[in-house]
Design a binder for these strands. Structure first.
Lengths: 148, 148
DNA sequence: TCGAATATGTCAACATGGCTGACATAAATG
DNA sequence: CATTTATGTCAGCCATGTTGACATATTCGA
């Protein structure tokens, strides 16, 4: 698990160096990409970090034009986050590396995609699985928000 | 993968707090446990960190009596590392948490242990897989060393 | 046997990405 | 209008990684 994860995050790490970014930037970019118009508070909730930690990383992503903020129309206190075209391109480039590794691993191991996914999912704390599903499938508060 | 790994290392993290240890200590303890009489250089090679980074963590593990050093008989420059009984107990306690999670995940996902292992293995960079196997199976330079 | 290479330790400075606490501002809400 | 909420920001701390430089003991090769 340790080595699999190390190499899994290794591919993106190389690309991120080009922009002087680290893994923290990747995570932020990823979830903002998956959740257009996400609120800062919800992003913090997903990442389980403090807003002070997020601030530094987010600022760099915004400064370099990968993410932009806009005022919420409904609630103007909110700064809704979304990736720019540039951000989308990078997010996709990074995701591609990881999904390719994943696909290769499945092919080489003779497992099915479904089994691998179910196994990884089952490694997560039971009480967190639902939350994780929501985060991944982005059937998120972009939708839930509208019901509020 | 991100969430699975996060929770996978989460269990040990709680236990390690008791001793004011972090993940770095866990990794060192784990590999020293798996490789009795490992040389410092080989440990650095496994962990892929610098000796300065290792030094701090290792010192704490030695000071608190989890690991001990002894002079190599063959080469007296070497400081061979091994866990104490106390270190063994902690290593086993931590390993138990993770193997239990692993076993549960396998049972719940309907995958076989073999498939899950092969999948994780296949996630590793092909050129590193052999090394990783050696590290895990501890058919290590404890043996290889004798051939030198 | 002596000089070079090796194994390890250690000092100092620095980067990254977490953390806490405190406080500011603007907007929403009861 | 007072309070709560969403966000931002300042300042300092911690863990764990990095590089570079240098010290010491020991082994090894010419």
């Amino acid at each position: 698990m340790f080595f699999a994860y190390r190499d899994f995050v290794g591919d993106p790490d190389h690309v991120l160096e080009r922009y002087q970014f680290g893994r923290a930037h990747h995570r932020v970019l990823h979830f903002v990409f998956r959740h257009p118009e996400i609120r800062v508070a919800d992003l913090l909730d997903i990442l389980k970090i403090t807003k002070q930690s997020l601030a530094r990383v987010l600022k760099e992503l915004i400064d370099q034009g990968f993410i932009l903020q806009k005022e919420g129309q409904v609630d103007r206190r909110q700064r809704l986050l979304a990736v720019t075209d540039k951000g989308k391109a990078l997010a996709l480039e990074l995701a591609k590396l990881q999904t390719e590794r994943f696909a290769r691993a499945i092919a080489q191991s003779g497992t099915t995609r479904d089994q691998a996914v179910r196994f990884l999912y089952a490694m997560i704390d039971p009480e967190r699985r639902e939350d994780v599903t929501r985060m991944i499938t982005q059937a998120d508060r972009a939708l839930r928000g509208k019901e509020r």
